[in-house]
Nucleic acid binder design. Structure first.
Lengths: 190, 190
DNA sequence: CGGCTTCTAGAGTTCTCTCTCTAGAGAGAT
DNA sequence: ATCTCTCTAGAGAGAGAACTCTAGAAGCCG
């Protein structure tokens, strides 16, 4: 066999398929070996433990999401909130498998057993994201006078809620759902 | 030992504690035996398989929720929707452990491996609930002219979204969250 | 060509889980 | 008092998962 017969991303894709078909707990090393058609040696060469595999699945999905969404924090607060809602829905529509990863929630990936490197990588990205969110919320509070709990619901939680119904049923996200979410956000922040 | 040493509900409570501490997959027969401090014989006497235990946990939680919420479907559609949202939040605040069960979603309880009796019991309750929801949505469509996807989001998904953030972080639900949700629903249906 | 390094294959160990099975305790009936 | 039925206790079998280990294949560099 030549070097690097198997693509690492193909192994992660197999893990995500297991999650989509079941739950995050369905991501087992044995399952990935079967699903990806590779040997246990190949998997363990890349991911020394199951925790490392789970960390890689989570970090890849969340970094993809952040990379595509981050630009929409720029600009005037209400417009930014509306754009974030719309593009969150659009991203989930375009990447339903990775969206399922995010919807499962960090807790399902057992972050307490991750290596320090995986943990730090996640925390750094999350801190960056949280800074953006806090700045946006501060802007919205100043502009609308609403309290944080309400803004969190409207700006962060509603887009996820809109999408969860379709993703967890394995159905496609309606094409106009982004419009609906954006309208709701604008109406609530008016 | 006398008859019925252990309470069946204590066994289900132990199962729910395992879910709250981890995930639905963390509900194992072996785990419940440890958590509840009973013998495997006692558990298997009540629940012949793990699937039967999972079915009992799910059905108990969902029936408690439906029993308390069902009355709020009565009355004028917009008022009913507002009441449902407010009381959904209130129920989750009062029963955070059972709320976690519902938030995990039916899929996490592997309903395909349930016994026909458990399955039918669930489906009967769900059908009853769905009839109420459909009737409410029909009323709201007539009154507001909005499409189903939007109404589902506002009336059904938003209350769950409001509550999920706090429950999955293990934090208490803010006392005024019910107000926030009710206001949002009324505003969107105006 | 020959050695070094990276990667792959898969057998084997240990652990945990589900489920079965047997022995027996205790309450109520006759 | 003893018999029956319900429930409990816990050992043990079988399956599957995480992880370890060893042998070796194949590219690269001299």
């Amino acid at each position: 066999m030549p070097r690097l017969v198997h693509d690492t991303s193909a192994i992660l894709d197999a893990a995500v398929r297991l999650l989509v078909a079941g739950s995050a707990d369905a991501i087992t090393i044995a399952g990935v070996i079967r699903e990806a058609g590779v040997s246990s040696g190949s998997v363990y060469h890349r991911f020394p433990t199951r925790a490392a595999l789970l960390a890689a699945v989570w970090n890849r999905a969340v970094e993809g999401f952040h990379a595509e969404l981050e630009e929409h924090f720029a600009g005037e607060p209400v417009a930014a909130a509306a754009a974030l809602g719309r593009h969150t829905v659009a991203w989930c529509r375009a990447h339903p498998a990775d969206a399922r990863v995010l919807l499962a929630g960090l807790g399902a990936f057992e972050p307490t057993s991750w290596s320090p490197e995986s943990r730090e990588r996640r925390e750094a990205g999350q801190a960056r994201w949280d800074r953006h969110v806090r700045r946006l919320l501060a802007g919205l509070r100043a502009e609308t006078g609403r309290e944080t709990a309400e803004l969190l619901l409207v700006v962060i939680d509603v887009p996820y809620a809109a999408v969860r119904r379709y993703l967890s049923a394995g159905r496609d996200i309606p094409a106009n759902l982004g419009d609906i979410v954006e309208r709701l956000i604008r109406a609530q922040l008016a």
